[in-house]
């Protein structure tokens, strides 16, 4: 079984960068896949990688991360201005961020509007399930 946890933007919006990252990492370390509305700031993405590295252990092997973001090249100038205003007022909630534990998600491929998650066959959850079946 694979668990997805949806995080709406309003759930992370009031948090500081450090708290946002900690919240997301906590869910991922619990072996759930985060599907977050919107995206982290660029510097938060790099902080997420840095903190992930600090927490690597034989149990926690890191994360797989992917962000789907609409291609703004196709937007008209009016749409861009409206989007910029909406971002200022409501925060940048366009796009989708997926963060999975490396023990569960083998890799995420993006192409660029499609996302494919390749799962690890030997993730702890799979192993537990198959062990139960054998009994």
């Amino acid at each position: 079984m694979v668990t997805f946890r949806f995080i709406p933007y309003h759930e992370i919006q009031p948090l500081s960068s450090a708290k946002r990252i900690n919240k997301l990492l906590k869910i991922v370390k619990d072996e759930s896949i985060v599907v977050m509305e919107g995206r982290l700031k660029r510097e938060e993405e790099v902080d997420l990688i840095e903190i992930t590295m600090e927490e690597i252990s034989p149990k926690f092997k890191g994360i797989e991360l992917s962000v789907v973001y609409p291609d703004k090249k196709d937007q008209s100038n009016m749409q861009r201005v409206r989007g910029a205003f909406a971002n200022v007022l409501l925060g940048d909630r366009t796009g989708l961020t997926i963060i999975g534990p490396a023990s569960v998600v083998k890799k995420i491929e993006k192409n660029p509007n499609k996302i494919e998650l390749f799962m690890n066959d030997n993730s702890p959850r799979y192993r537990k399930k198959s062990a139960r079946k054998k009994k």
């Binding site: 660029r42 510097e43 790099v46 990688i49 991360l65 992917s66 995420i108 993006k110 660029p112």
Partner: peptide, 17 residues
Amino acid sequence: KDPYSQVNITIIGNLQA
């Protein structure tokens, strides 16, 4: 290899910023 990995995008985005 596939260049669309988030690591590449994050590194390049941070350099741009």
